[in-house]
Every structure is written in structure tokens, then in C-alpha cells.
Amino acid sequence: MAKANILIIEDDKEISRLTAMYLEAEDYLTQIIDDGLHAVNAVRQHQPDLIILDLMLPGLDGIEICKQVRTFHTGPILVLTACADDMSEVSLLKLGADDYLTKPVRPHVMVARIEALLRRTQVAQPAKNQLNLGQLHIDTSRQLVSYGEITPQLTAAEYEMLLLLASNAGCIVSRDDCCRSLRGIDYDFNDRSVDMRISGLRKKLNDDTPPYKVILTVRNKGYMLIDG
């Protein structure tokens, strides 16, 4: 049985061929799209567990694809860039990307990043399928979230961050714990990246103006979700 279904959006045929070959050797299913104009529909059609997205594409570039895909797809997006200066990490996070790699990509690093991203979406769920905290309701079996009348569309990273905070409601969750939740203990995920996810959550929960009512920042310690 395949580990996951991965959609590769890359116009360089040799890179996409080698990427697919390496991933299939690791028991992943792959599909390849080489034209940006067909990428968004391909995501809808294949409903991949993870997307590998090149930024430089014919027809429609990776930036626009990422924006459009994030309106309906919540799975991880791993961006490939020609150089680290193409876009800042903050810009990529704002677009909805979950991680990025600079070309030339080292296959073992790519697989490690993919495994970390998929672990985040397949993390063991709490014993109960419903997590209810005041106006916040999380259906962990379907990964659905509602807050009062709001039903926010969260990315995989935002959902996992919210689930971590909700599972520890009323308690401070350290930045280190947030980092491990996002990328795994083997990787150094910096505070700015965590802050971007928290900022995205606050905006989608209509809690992005201080004083915050849902997710509090505890200075020099971490974050805490209000219990109730």
C-alpha cells in the first residue's frame, strides 16, 4: 500500500522524472503536471496528500497556483525554488506554503521533509472525535473546525497548530513544542515561522486585534488557547 499520493507540479521533465522515480522507490504514488495552467484543476481532480510545487512554471506561476489552490485544498504544499532569494520564508507562509526546498534538491532531504509534513497531517488524534472549548469545536475525525458562526478553512499547518493548542487549552505551549509539531524534532523551525501560523489562525478566527480573546501570547514562553 502506498504511503501517500503526491502531485508534482514541475515543468522540467528531467527533474520531475527523477523526483517521481525516487518517491516511487520510497513507496509513494506520484502524478506529474508540467503546465501551470492545468495545475489547479489537477489538484481538484487528484486530491493529493501532498503537493510539490515549482515556483517557475509556464502558463501560471507557482505563486498564483498556491494562492488559488489554498482556497479549497488544505494538504501540505512543498515549494521548490531556484534560489533562496526568490521569496522570503515569510512570503511563502503568507501564500499558504508549508515548507520549501532550494534546487538542486537532495533526494534524502526531500523525503525527510515530506515525511515530516505528512506526519503533521496524520498525527494521532485524541480519543474523542469532538473537541469542544467554548465557541471552538474541532471534529478530529474529519479535521473540521468551527468557531461560533465561523467555519475557517485552515491549512494543514494551521490545523495542527490549533489542535496542539486546543489539546493543551489553558496551559502554555512553548515555542519548542510548536516547532516540533510543525516540522518534527529533527528540524529547526524558527520563531518567525511559528508566529506566522499563529497570526494566520487569529485572522481566520476573527481574533487578530489585541487584546486577543482566543490565542494568547505569553511573553518569552509561548502561546495559550483560552479554555472556554
Rank of each mutant, 00 (worst) to 15 (best):
G200Q: 14
D27Y: 11
Y159A: 04
V214T: 09
R17K: 15
T74D: 06
D11Q: 00
I150H: 07
R142I: 10
L93M: 09
I9D: 01
H46C: 01
R44D: 08
D139A: 10
Q135L: 12
Y147W: 14
A84E: 15
P48W: 09
T217P: 08
A157R: 02
S167N: 15
Q68M: 09
P152S: 05
D54P: 06
A166Q: 12
I226W: 10
G96N: 01
D139W: 08
E160W: 00
P76C: 02
K3V: 09
L201K: 12
N220D: 09
L95D: 00
T121F: 09
H108C: 13
G148T: 04
P76W: 00
R175M: 11
K94N: 14
V194G: 00
F72A: 05
A42S: 11
A2I: 00
K13W: 09
L37K: 12
G148K: 00
F189V: 02
K67T: 15
T102G: 04
R175Y: 15
L136D: 07
R113Y: 05
L29W: 01
A84C: 14
A82S: 12
A127D: 09
L201R: 12
E160N: 07
L117I: 02
I15E: 00
R175C: 13
L50C: 05
D177I: 06
C178M: 12
K213V: 03
I32K: 06
D195Y: 03
L92A: 14
L92C: 10
R70M: 10
D61F: 05
Q143E: 11
L78C: 02
Q125S: 08
V105K: 03
L37E: 15
A82F: 10
G148L: 10
Q153V: 12
L182I: 05
V69D: 02
I9Y: 07
R106W: 07
E149T: 08
Y187H: 05
T155D: 07
I6H: 00
V145P: 02
L55M: 04
F189D: 06
S88M: 12
T19I: 02
R142M: 11
D85Q: 14
I51S: 02
E10Q: 01
G75V: 01
N206C: 10
L133Q: 04
S16I: 00
A169D: 14
R197E: 05
N41W: 03
V43K: 01
